[in-house]
Lab assay of single mutants.
Amino acid sequence: SEIVVAMYDFQATEAHDLRLERGQEYIILEKNDLHWWRARDKYGSEGYIPSNYVTGKK
């Protein structure tokens, strides 16, 4: 599975969105859409994140 790191904070506005915290790692579950990826955080929460807010883990 692909691990990404959040470059920016993202506040979830929709129920299906996942909040991003800058510097935290997330697991990508689905990339069915170019701009919104389904991800899981370290607490096990899942939701959609803006793909341009994250970068591949170095």
Rank of each mutant, 00 (worst) to 15 (best):
S1T: 13
S1G: 14
S1C: 15
S1F: 15
E2V: 11
I3L: 09
I3A: 06
I3G: 04
I3Q: 05
V4W: 10
V4Q: 03
V5R: 06
V5P: 00
V5Q: 05
A6R: 01
A6P: 01
M7A: 06
M7G: 03
M7S: 05
Y8Q: 10
Y8E: 09
D9E: 06
D9T: 05
D9S: 09
D9F: 05
D9M: 04
F10T: 04
F10Q: 03
Q11E: 15
Q11P: 14
Q11H: 13
Q11W: 13
T13P: 10
T13L: 13
T13W: 10
E14V: 09
E14A: 13
A15D: 12
A15I: 12
H16A: 10
H16L: 08
D17N: 15
L18G: 01
L18R: 01
L18W: 02
R19G: 12
L20K: 00
E21Q: 10
E21K: 08
E21L: 08
E21V: 13
E21N: 07
R22V: 12
R22L: 08
R22T: 10
G23N: 05
G23T: 04
Q24G: 09
Q24W: 06
E25I: 10
E25H: 08
E25T: 10
E25V: 09
E25Y: 10
Y26E: 00
Y26D: 00
I27R: 07
I28P: 00
L29D: 01
L29Y: 02
L29A: 00
E30S: 10
K31N: 07
K31C: 10
K31E: 03
K31Q: 07
N32F: 11
N32M: 13
N32D: 11
N32E: 11
N32P: 14
N32H: 12
N32G: 12
D33M: 09
L34D: 14
L34E: 15
L34V: 12
L34C: 15
H35D: 10
H35C: 15
W36D: 03
W36L: 06
W37N: 01
W37L: 04
W37P: 02
R38P: 02
R38C: 13
R38L: 15
A39M: 02
A39E: 01
A39Q: 02
A39Y: 02
A39K: 00
R40G: 03
R40A: 07
R40T: 05
R40E: 03
R40N: 02
D41Y: 02
D41F: 01
D41L: 02
D41N: 07
Y43F: 11
Y43G: 07
Y43S: 08
Y43V: 05
G44F: 03
G44R: 01
G44M: 06
S45Q: 15
S45F: 12
S45N: 15
S45H: 15
E46V: 10
E46L: 04
E46G: 01
G47F: 04
G47C: 06
G47I: 02
Y48E: 02
Y48D: 04
Y48K: 07
I49G: 02
I49T: 01
P50N: 07
P50M: 04
S51R: 08
S51G: 06
S51W: 05
N52I: 10
N52L: 10
N52Q: 12
Y53R: 07
Y53D: 03
V54D: 02
T55D: 08
T55Q: 11
T55E: 12
T55N: 08
G56Q: 14
G56L: 14
G56A: 15
G56W: 12
K57D: 10
K58P: 13
K58S: 14
